[in-house]
Amino acid sequence: MSVLKFASTDQPGRNGLLALVKAKTGQDVLACYQCGKCSAGCPLSSAMDLAPHQVLRAVQLGQRDLVFQSSAIWLCVTCQTCYTRCPQEVDLPRVMDALRSQALQEKIRPAERTVKVFHDVFLGLVERFGRLYEVGLIGGYNLLARQPLASADLGLPMLTRGKLELIPRRVKDQEQIKAIFKRAAELELEEITGQSVAAAPPASVPS
């Protein structure tokens, strides 16, 4: 097990992981006092390598590798149970979002490859058609995830019950959808390269 090392020359804030999360989410991860309530209520924690509170702990300690290589950031389905019950009001789902997108930016191999493939296929279809094309999602996923028969047994009953549309429906304004994808990615990159990190948005604003 890797040793967490702190040199005497470490600067406050360490390697900027805390600041990065703060900039991307407005969340102060130091507010977490490790009570473990998030992990206790998380439907996925038993499947995760780092429990949700440990993800926050690793952020507190600036453990980038631990966080970005974890399965936890990919298994979180943002069910919001943790945030709803957190006594310190740490928006953990939002922190998870930020860690995931940062891991992608840093080209770190996702610990849950199939989850990543699913989202890639999903968004690929949305970018192409403007709406989700469910048949395309299953087909595309099976191809990319190299699981040709995944969900196959569901295919026929779904088809016979008219649950599957064989032909994708499209948004008329295709150009705008494509532009949204392009400009969102640009904005994302702009933030990560730090050009406008200071102007990063705060946490979701309650009305």
Binding site: K24, V77, T78, D97, A98, R100, S101, L104, F118, H119, F122, L123, V126, G130, R131, L132, V171, I177, I180, F181, R183, A184, A185, L187, E188
Partner: peptide, 15 residues
């Protein structure tokens, strides 16, 4: 159009 559902926020806040 699709709201991005459970996938968009996984990879990009602005999307």
């Amino acid at each position: 159009n699709c709201c991005g559902a459970s996938s968009a926020h996984m990879v990009s806040r602005w999307l």
